[in-house]
Write a protein that binds this DNA or RNA. Sequence first.
DNA 1: AATTGTGAACCTCTTCACAGCT
DNA 2: AGCTGTGAAGAGGTTCACAATT
Lengths: 223, 223
Amino acid sequence: MTFIDRPLVGENKISDATVRRLSLYYRSLKYAYDRGMRTISSQELADMNNLTAAQVRKDLSFFGAFGRRGLGYYVADLQRNIARIIGINKTWNVALVGAGNIGRALLDYDQFRQQGFLIKVLFDNDPTKIGKTFQGLEVKDFGNVAEEIKQNKIKIAIIAVPAQFAQSVVDRLIGCKVRAVLNFAPITLQVPENIWVRNENMAIEIEALSFALTNRRDPTRTI
Amino acid sequence: MTFIDRPLVGENKISDATVRRLSLYYRSLKYAYDRGMRTISSQELADMNNLTAAQVRKDLSFFGAFGRRGLGYYVADLQRNIARIIGINKTWNVALVGAGNIGRALLDYDQFRQQGFLIKVLFDNDPTKIGKTFQGLEVKDFGNVAEEIKQNKIKIAIIAVPAQFAQSVVDRLIGCKVRAVLNFAPITLQVPENIWVRNENMAIEIEALSFALTNRRDPTRTI
DNA sequence: AATTGTGAACCTCTTCACAGCT
DNA sequence: AGCTGTGAAGAGGTTCACAATT
């Protein structure tokens, strides 16, 4: 059955790791459906992501009882449910701050668009960039951030500016009622309790590989 | 004192979370040194990264006793030690597969270069791209991957190709003795036990923000 | 007086194992 | 017979609290 029988907020705490895995399951279900699978077992979902079947069932069980004993999960049904749980059953307008290399690459990043994250405004503070157009989107002056954010009803912003500017950018965004930030700057942002930040630090990931090759004997896998 | 008094391999298991935090400490130490700080306490390092002082001390203690009671840590000394632990006290030659938007953005990503990850070869399989030059690097035919990898003594590769090609690319790279992979394709790669993979999935991060805004009341911070 | 290094306590996440359902 | 859902057990990671050191 397709209902959520538990509260998702407050003291009922869904771990970060579980949330990340939901995204993996969502992709696996898409993949499975495209290949004609109409039901899928926790074991199959686990195998596709190098996890255990118990882990998959436990993760899903936090949100409801989506499966059928003896059968597994209906692929389309579970996919819809996960989309709703993650909040990608609708679109999100997103602001992107920073029209440098990373920013411009993200403008054309299919995975965002496909999951309903639509980059609606592109900001920079460089006068030589303001007014230019990338991927059909005009670079706006970050000085006018407030009105653009409001006009586009933006709750999620992506920060792709050099480290030294990132904190002031996030402060300004929060002042404009932005609630969540995907941060590509290699610095830990200080934000109030009610603001969400995820850091995308590619150097940290490659450094973890360096550490592994330098020190470790046996590999472990991570998301 | 600056020595490592514990084995870093085998049953002595350093958690992934600790390794990621080492990278954060390394950046914080750089920042602190640039601002003239010569010693730093675990509390200061913690504050810079929204962690606890105990966490910082515990992480460092896995590798040795680097601090001085009553004083803290010598900034330059600790930075050097962490660089050596992570394995970024030398340079790594890196191969980049995929000359699309993401790949080209990474070519010019300062954080890689600064930490000694040098992209030495750029591959693609698109005949319209092969032979072109981006950031001074000529796109090579992925068909010739073996010789280029060998010539450049490459152990770490970055995969920035569409999802459907990622598995065959990684299989091929492993055949060329590549030991570690930073994967930007939104798919779980299947690799042998002795190969290291880190996934950089930007859609997963933004989906975590969507989940938070959709479901959660109280923010938590993550790396 | 200040701060580290660390065993122990605590907490969180994962895995086990099996009852319960189809 | 097959597979889920879940309480309990187990493993792993974080925080506490304090002795040790400068």
